[in-house]
Design a protein around this nucleic acid. Structure first.
Lengths: 98, 98
DNA sequence: CCATTTTTGACCGGATCAGTCAAATAAACT
DNA sequence: AGTTTATTTGACTGATCCGGTCAAAAATGG
């Protein structure tokens, strides 16, 4: 139970919109349905490959979903850090000038 | 040999400025001197506790060094990702509105 | 050269994390 | 109510990641 996950919200919303069961998504990714549930709740992160599969399966823009996934990973890493915002801004600067 | 590390540059510069040997820093942190060398080259990351020790040892601002350390960790995670910049900006937004 | 310092590679142990299974809980339907 | 189906949760596992060490190799410099 973590609940900070953008990707989780996205795929859960999409799944419910299409009236699909966890089992269906799980079959498409060839994983346990419990794992899909955990993706949606953010207590397991999908692999990069699974993000691509999820995007295809739900007909979502791959770059958008990948961005959400990456952002979740970063956020998880820095969320309790006092210097989080400064660090993120520093990285942004570095990426921009690359 | 990675060379993207801000923290590594900082402590190496500081160490040389004060004419200290790796062995001295290593003793202060109670670790192998090889590890300190790797910190400087960015192929091992110090722990959070070690960052504090390094800041104290070199009389550097702890928040500054911690920021560099965090930024290095983030950058390492996203540097080869196409969506890195978008993700980082998203995290920044989330941190700002927290 | 020789002594000292730094760097590098191989390896180890612990932590982390995706993944599974089964039990527990929650929805949904009759 | 009870029953079935769907979801969530916890415990556990195996593989990968990463801090750390040691010793050898490569620099540095006197």
């Amino acid at each position: 139970m973590s609940r900070t996950e953008a990707l989780g919200y996205i795929i859960k919303r999409e799944r419910e919109k299409r009236n699909l069961l966890l089992r269906h998504v799980a079959a498409a990714l060839d994983i346990d349905q419990a794992l899909v549930s955990k993706f949606e709740h953010g207590d397991r992160m999908p692999t990069k490959e699974q993000v691509v599969l999820l995007a295809n399966y739900f007909h979502l823009n791959e770059n958008d979903l990948m961005t959400a996934w990456l952002a979740d990973k970063i956020y998880t890493e820095v969320q309790y850090e006092k210097m989080a915002l400064r660090a993120v801004k520093l990285v942004e600067k570095k990426l921009t000038s690359k």
